[in-house]
Design a protein around this nucleic acid. Structure first.
Lengths: 120, 120
DNA sequence: ATGTAATATGCCTTGACAGGCATATACTCC
DNA sequence: GGAGTATATGCCTGTCAAGGCATATTACAT
């Protein structure tokens, strides 16, 4: 299973995580709120636990699950690479304009950042 | 396949996306850079395309692929719910402190929303 | 101790999907 | 129009994981 991405690919697991985002919950609470069979909940929780998304605290016969940040950070870090993309950040806009400029008043063999027409 | 989360669960697809993050590429370029069989690349690109992660521009016999923002936004939106979580944001810390306060010297109904004049 | 509640685990079946391979389609240049 | 290049598609197979069900485990209460 490994990757955090694979873990959150499963819709039910995302539901569980979303639920836990509002507050910690016992297995039974999750079961009832999400209307899914207990064994299914337990199994998903196991996967989430082993991937570090949640941790359990024992409280009598209950296990109360709560979120843990690390794997989220990991996913977020990956996303960060692309964020510049949908956030036409000033930096990026700037770079873009730079390129435009250089392209128009070119002449000098400026191998820019684009690889258009490159054959490798 | 549907969900954007399922799409990025596949490691090779993430590689392709990361590669495209630096610059648009043709199928052949991806194939060579990532050292994966062409048919595999094409298949992954199809999946990515149908999920809206990339789009292709036709250039002679080449197809040049580039990223599209929407699905990334979607994933990011979901993550946002949890971000407060690993970013012990001032707001959150504040709410936490509020709760502590209310719990300890309860009774007095001082619901404060700002931290003006809060002791720290 | 026995019964009951809460949760976990094992087994089995089924479906989805990635990878490999062969092949089809599309375009270019001579 | 035939050869070569670039990319897509179809079929097959193996793998892996989710769901259902039965059952095990653990804690509690009486």
């Amino acid at each position: 299973m490994e990757s955090s991405f694979a873990i959150i690919a499963e819709p039910n697991r995302r539901s569980i995580l979303s639920l836990l985002a509002s507050s910690e919950r016992s297995v039974g609470e999750i079961e009832r709120r999400l209307r899914m069979p207990q064994t299914s909940v337990s199994k998903h929780l196991r996967v989430l636990r082993e991937a570090g998304f949640v941790e359990a605290r024992i409280e009598a016969q209950r296990r109360v699950y709560q979120l843990r940040p690390e794997p989220f950070k990991e996913v977020d870090a990956w996303l960060a690479t692309f964020r510049q993309f949908w956030t036409p950040h000033v930096d990026r806009l700037e770079r873009h304009l730079d390129r435009m400029e250089q392209t128009s008043r070119k002449g000098t063999s400026n191998k820019r950042t684009s690889n258009k027409g490159r054959k490798q």
